[in-house]
């Protein structure tokens, strides 16, 4: 009886995709288009200038980069709350290296690697203590923020080579921001990792059923370590990118960005229970956050209200997704 029903539902899916199936696939994309449409109608003059789209792309890129890493942490049914602090610390260290005369390229590379090392520390702490990543990264979030404040004496760092900020802020063909290309490249690489590699398959397995993964021979600790390293690397890359766009290293930079990253991953369809989600969804989720942020500036809403609207939209979009998905 059960088999028949499954066969029937499968056959149906092949012939005529149900609304449900369509929503699963393109729902988040629809929300993005909807938001863009609202902006286009509200501020047609501004919206249809190329600089607006370029700005949205550039602004979303940092979100997307962080969210890409966060995605992996959530994929194994964990979380990484330290990403905002990792962004700040890697940006600060990169800035200080450049001010000290290190070649910008080397400084950038070391900055990103530092992000990876911080991620490894998170992973090692999770493995070593057996505590939930929520607790570990809540702790490292505070610790890394503190370290950033300490090494900067709580003040911003400027005065690094203009070539660096100029390069980061370059728009390819005057249209596409370099940072968006960086984010896209990262997304392509990570999408390949999740879809085409055994490592990616193992991570999904680990997120889907940790116990079963252990019995199936997956090295749970090694994969946890790798996942947090990826999260750290992405945050490190985001830190360098943010540094170049802002032009100074602020000790309080990226405060609360973990919320946006988590929101982007969840809006993009990543399951909080682990094992389910796609990179494409995360990219769209990151865009949505970027568009919301940018749109509220465009509509010149007061910044105090922006926080409220952002929160409401996060709840609203995920609730809408669940509501539609659960309606049979």
């Amino acid at each position: 009886m059960k088999g028949e029903r499954n066969m029937a539902s499968n056959a149906r899916a092949k012939e005529k995709p149900t609304f449900n199936a369509l929503w699963q696939r393109f729902g988040t994309f629809g929300i993005l288009i909807l938001l863009l449409a609202i902006l286009a109608i509200a501020r047609p003059g501004h919206f249809f200038s190329t600089s607006t789209l370029t700005q949205i792309l550039a602004q979303s890129s940092v979100n997307i980069l962080i969210a890409l890493g966060e995605f992996f942490a959530i994929l194994i049914a964990g979380i990484d709350l330290s990403v905002g602090s990792v962004v700040a610390l890697t940006g600060m260290v990169t800035a200080q290296m450049m001010v000290a005369g290190v070649h910008p390229l080397l400084a950038v590379l070391l900055g990103v690697l530092l992000g990876g090392v911080l991620g490894l520390i998170n992973g090692a702490l999770v493995n070593g203590t057996g505590l939930h990543p929520f607790i570990i990264t809540l702790g490292t979030q505070a610790i890394l923020r503190g370290v950033t404040l300490m090494i900067s004496n709580s003040s911003a760092v400027f005065g690094f080579p203009a070539s660096f900020t100029r390069t980061i802020s370059v728009n390819v063909f005057g249209l596409i921001p370099l940072v968006a290309i960086i984010a896209l490249l990262a997304a392509v690489v990570l999408s390949f990792l999740t879809r085409q590699t055994k490592l990616g398959r193992n991570i999904y397995a680990l997120g889907g059923n940790r116990e079963a993964a252990w019995y199936a021979g997956i090295n749970v600790k090694l994969h946890t370590l790798i996942v947090f390293m990826i999260s750290g690397l992405c945050a490190g890359l985001a830190g360098v990118v943010l540094l170049g766009r802002v032009g100074s290293a602020e000790p309080a930079a990226a405060t609360g960005f973990e919320t946006y990253a988590i929101a982007a991953a969840i809006i993009g369809g990543t399951s909080f229970f682990g094992g389910k989600g796609k990179i494409f969804g995360v990219v769209i989720g990151g865009f949505i956050i970027g568009v919301i942020n940018f749109g509220m500036n465009l509509l010149s809403l007061p910044s105090t209200l922006q926080q409220v609207v952002m929160g409401a939209l996060i709840i609203g979009s995920v609730a809408l997704d669940r509501f539609v998905a659960n309606k049979k």
Binding site: K198, N209, A216, I218, L222
Partner: peptide, 27 residues
């Protein structure tokens, strides 16, 4: 401790073969 609910049949079946033929501790 057995199957992976988020995986389909083929992914469940191939998992260990992939792991066994992977280098670097199965990664």
């Amino acid at each position: 401790t057995g199957f992976f609910q988020n995986f389909d049949i083929k992914e469940n079946i191939s998992l260990i073969s992939f792991l066994k033929t992977a280098r670097g501790g199965g990664t």
